[in-house]
Nucleic acid binder design. Structure first.
Lengths: 223, 223
DNA sequence: TCTTGTGAACTCGTTCACAGCA
DNA sequence: TGCTGTGAACGAGTTCACAAGA
């Protein structure tokens, strides 16, 4: 059988599979029909052996001595990631970041559709972002129930993120991406992925400063 | 001495140190003067032992039997992360996401200042975001040189990200946070941190779907 | 006695090297 | 011959358990 094996797929691998799928979509658009692990790996910015190991979690999906068939692999990945049918999500907090995410066309093509954009600010309610009208946050429970939403994105101010999270969980949401800079407390069975944009910058600054120190040290060491 | 040891600090630890610092800032505002590893860990969403190990890279900074002094630890972390003096950054691509990042007040308080906001679209040039005026992307080299910028944020469309990256590197930038969904190719000595917002959502969707499957399986298994 | 600091064990993910097969 | 698929070696990071010390 070519069905996925009973192995559990590590989260790190799932994240990379999503990247491979994005690259394959680009290749398919260019009319490419076949690709090697080396080429795919360099386009995705990973090690070729690692890419093959990642794909091996889905069972054999290439041809030895040749490479991978682009359309077949694309379909295989899409199915493994569950991108075949669009998944309904809600987004709470239509500030700058929330608006950016809601307006990002990339989500639609990757199997996500925002069925609810919610904000507590009455002046924002009614705005149309990415084709969807912003609704008052009081509608949260209604929207989640009406569409059977299980995935939510939180882009509220930190101060209200936990309260919003509690309401989402109570309404039936089981998976949350949190952009607010606080650690959310959730009951078991609920997944939270914490994304802190300024941490990325801070890590980079740390590495950058180390480079600077190294350069200084070298300069001091030189005559 | 209480100076940092010569150990190399893992990137994963650096990222968490930034989170601890954020939590400490909140505690300091509340007037808290002392905190235990357990409390700090739960506020940051990590394991207490791991937190202590993270802090130990900076050398001993707590009091056994008591905990950590909030102001002292705050200063220690700020110094380790290099947040004392503001670092100059440029941001290229003032679309939705770029505007959101540029307008995010959190960066200022965390030691970053955007000295250049650049965009290729003439209709955006002149807009003021977060107190800084948007300039044409042609000014890239001038801005980088004038401020000695070594850190850049790329929020352009994917199609032009590599070209922008090449210009940044040629101008002297050594550290890049890339939000465009392509793997940037850079020479040695240049760090790139790739952030793909839709990958977060995709991983979450995968986990969410697995839960659904598990539930279904359970339901099938029930009488 | 309480909490920190840390070596040691362990788990997880990555890399390597080569067997397997068109 | 060439590239995939994968067990095995390796290394990084996390967790544990306890010694050290206020």
């Amino acid at each position: 059988m070519s069905e996925p094996r009973n192995r559990v797929i590590p989260e790190t691998t799932v994240a990379r599979l999503a990247v491979y799928l994005r690259v394959l979509n680009g290749l398919a658009e260019s009319g490419r029909t076949s690709v090697s692990s080396g080429e795919l790996a360099s386009a995705a910015g990973v090690n070729p052996a690692g890419l093959r190991k990642d794909l091996s979690y889905l069972g054999p999906c290439g041809v030895r001595g040749v490479g991978y068939a682009v359309p077949a692999l694309r379909e295989r990945l899409a199915r493994a990631l569950g991108v075949e049918q669009a998944r309904s999500c809600v987004l709470v907090g239509m500030g700058n970041l929330g608006s950016a995410l809601a307006g990002y066309a990339g989500f639609g093509s990757r199997g996500f559709s925002f069925v609810g954009l919610l904000d507590a600010d009455p002046t924002r309610v009614g705005d149309v972002v990415g084709g969807t009208a912003v609704r008052p946050v009081d509608d949260l429970e209604d929207v989640v129930a009406a569409h059977g939403v299980t995935i939510a994105v939180v882009t509220t101010p930190a101060a209200v993120a936990q309260a919003v999270c509690d309401r989402l969980v109570a309404a039936g949401v089981r998976s949350i991406v949190n952009f607010a800079p606080v650690a959310l407390v959730v009951p078991g069975g609920v997944d939270v992925r914490q994304v802190d944009l300024s941490v990325e910058l801070q890590v980079l600054a740390f590495l950058d400063r180390q480079k600077g120190v190294d350069v200084q040290t070298e300069q001091v060491a030189l005559p």
